[in-house]
Computed example of a mutant assay.
Amino acid sequence: MMRSGWSDYGTRFADEESVETYARLYGEGTYDEYVWSLERPTVVDLLRQERHQRGRLRLLDFACGTGRTLAAVDEVADEVTGVDISAEMARHAARSSPKADIKVGCVLSEELLSGPYDAVTIFRFFLNAPQKLRLPVLRKIREHMERDALLVFNNHGHCPSLRSLAVRVPKPRPQPPNELRHRDIVQLLSDSGFRIERRYGFSLFPPVLHRHLPAPVLRRADAAAASPRLRRIPQRVMSEQLYVARAVGEP
């Protein structure tokens, strides 16, 4: 059974054609794939360091979608679990990462998680999920994590950023754009038993500029802004925020 707020997602991606369309929209050559290419080395390095410190790594990729994150991390982790509410998404994820144990369903109403996990990755979930589900879901995941486990996740609609301006142009929308502020993330983590250790910024220029201006120039600028040497300067106005947090206290 699916909780209200996720049923539309399960319906939207209930068949292979819709998932293939999704994969093309965010696949090779797209703006989103480029941003992921900037993020991926940082994510993999964080997980590799965690495994080195622990001597092993049992990883959960929540809302795994078509398996993009799983494909990047399954060589780093010793055990990998992927969870998604869409069965068709999960089938794609299984092809992307044959090593992973893929589970389908809603974590709030089904016993899908085992753990305890040493690390959890969550991408493209918090911004898209209804607000009323974010805290319950993260608390449920926290229950299945080691006390000092690592959490790595993104906010791909950070406000304020150039994206904040772009989504309001050329005319006001009937509903507010989908955005999350840093303070919202801080509160969410605090309320669910996590402490932020670091955050990184990616994607200075929003997708609309990449579509209407010379993309190679903007991509070089984005890559430079995300480099370790410069990333602290524009981090707070980047559209994509990568968070690194640590589980604290008892689950």
Rank of each mutant, 00 (worst) to 15 (best):
M1Y: 11
S4Q: 13
S4W: 02
T30H: 00
S37H: 00
R40E: 12
P41Y: 06
V43T: 13
D45A: 14
L47G: 01
R48P: 03
Q53F: 10
Q53Y: 08
G55I: 01
R58K: 14
L59I: 09
F62N: 00
F62H: 13
C64E: 05
R68D: 04
L70I: 10
D74Q: 15
V76P: 08
V76M: 07
V76W: 10
A77P: 03
E79P: 03
I85V: 14
S86I: 03
A87N: 04
M89S: 08
A90S: 11
R91H: 04
A100K: 12
D101R: 15
V104T: 12
G105S: 07
C106M: 09
L108Y: 08
L113H: 02
S114Y: 00
Y117W: 11
Y117D: 04
A119W: 08
F123A: 09
R124W: 08
F126M: 05
L127S: 12
A129Y: 01
P130N: 05
P130E: 09
P130K: 01
K132E: 15
L135H: 12
L135F: 08
R139N: 02
I141P: 02
H144D: 01
H144C: 07
M145G: 05
D148Q: 13
L151I: 06
V152Y: 07
N154C: 13
N155C: 13
H156I: 10
L162E: 05
L162P: 02
R163C: 04
L165S: 01
A166M: 04
P172C: 10
R173F: 01
Q175N: 14
Q175K: 15
E179L: 15
L180H: 13
R183F: 13
V186D: 09
Q187K: 15
S192K: 05
F194K: 01
Y200P: 00
G201W: 07
V208I: 15
V217C: 00
V217F: 10
L218F: 12
L218V: 10
L218M: 12
L218N: 06
A221Y: 07
A226W: 07
R231D: 13
R232F: 13
I233M: 14
S239R: 14
Y243H: 09
V248N: 03
P251S: 11
P251Y: 03
